[in-house]
Write a protein that binds this DNA or RNA. Sequence first.
DNA 1: GTTAGCACTCTAAAAGCGAGAGTGCTAATT
DNA 2: AATTAGCACTCTCGCTTTTAGAGTGCTAAC
Lengths: 350, 350
Amino acid sequence: MEELTDRQKILLTLITHEHINSAQPVGSKMLVERYNVGLSSATVRNEMAELTELGYLRQPHTSAGRVPTEKGYRFFVGRLVNEREIPLSTRRTITHQFYQMRNDVEQWVKLAGSILADQSKAASLITAPHPTLARLKHVEFIATRGRQVLMVLVLMGGEIRQSIQTLSEYVGQDRLSQIANQIIDNYQGFDLDKINHHKGVDNNLENDLIDWVITELQRADSLVSGELFLDGITNVMAEPEFNDSEEARKTLKVLGERSMLQDVIARSIQNGDEGSVQVLIGGDGAWEELKHCSIVLSKYGAPGVAFGTVGVLGPVRMPYGQTISAVRFMSGILSDLVSETLYDDQYKSS
Amino acid sequence: MEELTDRQKILLTLITHEHINSAQPVGSKMLVERYNVGLSSATVRNEMAELTELGYLRQPHTSAGRVPTEKGYRFFVGRLVNEREIPLSTRRTITHQFYQMRNDVEQWVKLAGSILADQSKAASLITAPHPTLARLKHVEFIATRGRQVLMVLVLMGGEIRQSIQTLSEYVGQDRLSQIANQIIDNYQGFDLDKINHHKGVDNNLENDLIDWVITELQRADSLVSGELFLDGITNVMAEPEFNDSEEARKTLKVLGERSMLQDVIARSIQNGDEGSVQVLIGGDGAWEELKHCSIVLSKYGAPGVAFGTVGVLGPVRMPYGQTISAVRFMSGILSDLVSETLYDDQYKSS
DNA sequence: GTTAGCACTCTAAAAGCGAGAGTGCTAATT
DNA sequence: AATTAGCACTCTCGCTTTTAGAGTGCTAAC
């Protein structure tokens, strides 16, 4: 499969690099002038022709320079090692900011999104950490009006879920509170299977409420990820590839309806390990609407406890080196924070 | 001030109307052909010249048709009476959808946003209903790790607020729950002044927690509006005035950072009454970034209890009649829903 | 295997050009 | 005095034409 000579590899890398910076098709002459390849433009041309043959490059039109194809980009990204690290001072400043706002998960996520969007000059996508397995920490039933009751359910890890239901008969607040306390006493730290297993059928009402809790735990488990936060959308729109308003609108639509992004992220969560960075180039064939976009994603969190995703969406022509290290760095920070916060919960319940 | 003749008023209205539909400068000849004005194009030209003099119209360049100025639009909107009503059948369908999802406020708001964006073919902005005066309904303190405690505060009306704090000493969950119950017993339905007034200094810890509740109530009161939801951003970007990608980006930026919209909405809340629809044309001089946008806003809610805002953002060249009635309609629905849901709370506490 | 040279291609930007829509003014008409 | 027909003038828009330049592929020489 890989029949590229070393020289071809170098040239392909150079061309891709140059194109990422200039946003223009790269010509042979240009290349030998700018970089000191020890070759003439004619030789480069020959190699280019072959790389085009092999599907790594393409020409927007005859007699224009070359542009990497998706395959070309993939090769480029695969070879990336010299990730341009974020300077230590910057890293320190950023880390510091996070530790300023101890323990407000939503704040963390928003901050991470804002920093990442800024660093990468693209759009950031981050999902809040979400427990691997929803486990009861606290529950409260609050009578609202008539037979209607609001349930506030706190999961291990701090995620709060609320839900409204109408009971079949009126129940006073006192009784509701009493049952809530009972449920907490009996089932704190339990996941839904465990609750199901230990459940003794005491009382009709109590049973209904426990079932309600179980349903909500189920719903939490069925969600693959926490809430999705976007930032820096305008950064992406500033890129020259989105000068065409039609393209811009399409991409904007993708960013607007979260559902497709959720899909992408879901797949990433299934495949990836914490810390590893995945790169999705041009929608990878699967997502037509993301043809002109690339996504750099990483899973973060505490193994076995909770995780989320952190990523960047930009044009296919994206400074992958920079972006990857930015994402990796952010993933690390968030993993640390989440681990520190959540391990206690984990141990407490075991 | 108003020295417009009847004929000028009619012409100005016609020109504005035509421009809104065609998105093109309107010429004199065009106008007399399309609408049966009983006048010649020359006469119309004279009138146009005068309207331009008076600041209601302008020419994009010499020898082009006329386009309404902001002043022109304002006049047009002020005279609007023949609001194109939404057909009864549609109204029924929409109303029905809302009553399907009884009592989930967030769902309502999202649904309203989606419908409004769709109806108006522009972006919708809706804030969740927010109590006029935050009053305690329920509170819960949950020990998380070490001395750290999570407070879940439920306000009258159902808004849930959470906050994290580190206490000065470790306190067990039992004690926390006990104090929470005590606070609920003593202060349910009270606003922060009332709590302050009745507060007896029993105990150091208890006192701290009550103060925490008060702080959070204060924070809730200081917020002028509930969470802001946007929908249909792509609708706006599809309009021809945003074909220029620079303009598009500016507007997108405004929609992206919520802060400016919050400002606009805050002002609208202060000025407006429930049900009345306000129209903000071209940023009304105050907001440079909204130069090319208009916002149609209405306050909704239950008087004295809670309110939010519902609105539409689109280009200055916007079908105001349609939009205004769509917004008014939605405002009405939401007001009804909120009133039905919240009045009970109101009465219960008095 | 490499490179200089060259003819050729294609685009993007500039320049040129006519059609058409619209204006403002003047003089005639009502 | 208001209206309108007529007309010269202006400007944009869309079209083709031109030109400059960058880039290519090929061939022949190194």
